[in-house]
């Protein structure tokens, strides 16, 4: 338990978070790139054809992992927001602000690939089906979080606290939005070909690339989030000595001290 508490405090301090996150960047990026390459080659060229949707089903290898990520990242952002708001942790603020753009990016991918899938399957690019509608509203939630932070350019701490509040409110509302939209679409239209439901992926050769891509996107999120969080910490702590030391800048005062010591 003591070690855990210590780890929490170590990761909670911007300089050590910056340093430790730095070690993870390259491995995470390599894992993400490698798994993406493997997963997509496997999924696009080797996975068997779906008897119902033919080759068009191969879109799920980017669509479904992105959809999972868009929700997973919002959850991560919400947790970071709670930590940032309750304990005023700078690192949690950084993680929250770093998560928003990647989450929005995955949401955009989900929407665009969903449209490209919808055209051959439904005969239209856009159908107000429950999943796509809640995904679109999720995009607005992400935009709201980013816009809230961007609106304050003079006071990053205050902006981060208000943004955390926006993210928490969104987190509370997300289930309500999700279920209301689902309910709404189940009343007003008979469900057409469900993008994930009807494919009924049971074949391991189809499932494997999907899982590989799910891990690849998770690793990419890890890379991108840590990268952004480091930049965020450098940006907000640019006047601190550790930030300058991290970039190889030593303050003259310290140099003098070292000289007098030596």
């Amino acid at each position: 338990m003591n070690k855990l508490v210590k780890l929490y405090h170590t990761l909670g301090s911007p300089p050590s978070f910056y340093r430790i996150a730095g070690y993870f960047l390259t491995p995470l990026l390599l894992l993400a790139l490698g798994l993406t390459a493997y997963g997509l080659v496997d999924g696009l060229f080797f996975a068997p054809i779906d008897y119902q949707q033919k080759d068009a089903y191969r879109i799920i290898f980017v669509h479904v992992p992105s959809a999972w990520m868009s929700m997973f990242i919002y959850a991560m952002m919400g947790i970071a927001a709670i930590m940032a708001f309750v304990w005023r942790m700078k690192v949690a603020e950084a993680v929250m602000m770093a998560s928003a753009p990647i989450g929005a990016a995955f949401t955009v991918i989900t929407l665009v690939t969903g449209m490209l899938w919808g055209k051959p399957m439904w005969g239209t690019y856009w159908d107000w089906d429950a999943r796509m509608t809640s995904e679109l509203i999720l995009l607005f939630l992400y935009i709201g979080v980013m816009a809230m932070y961007a609106a304050f350019d003079d006071d990053p701490r205050k902006a981060a606290r208000l943004t955390a509040l926006v993210a928490i409110i969104g987190l509370v509302n997300l289930p309500i939005i999700h279920y209301s939209v689902e309910w709404w679409s189940s009343i007003h239209q008979k469900s057409s070909v469900k993008l994930t439901g009807s494919t009924g992926i049971k074949d391991w050769d189809m499932l494997r690339p999907l899982l590989v891509m799910a891990f690849a996107t998770k690793f990419y999120y890890g890379y991108s989030m840590l990268h952004r969080a480091r930049s965020y910490l450098l940006h907000t702590e640019s006047q601190k000595q550790w930030a300058q030391a991290a970039l190889g800048l030593d303050t003259p005062k310290k140099q003098n001290k070292e000289q007098s010591n030596g």
């Binding site: 997509l40 696009l44 054809i49 033919k54 080759d55 068009a56 191969r58 879109i59 980017v62 669509h63 992105s66 991918i109 665009v112 690939t113 490209l116 899938w117 055209k119 051959p120």
Partner: peptide, 15 residues
């Protein structure tokens, strides 16, 4: 992609 080239490769391109 059996007639679905535009949609499948378009999705990959978007990604």
């Amino acid at each position: 992609m059996g007639g679905y080239e535009y949609f499948v490769w378009g999705s990959m391109l978007c990604f």
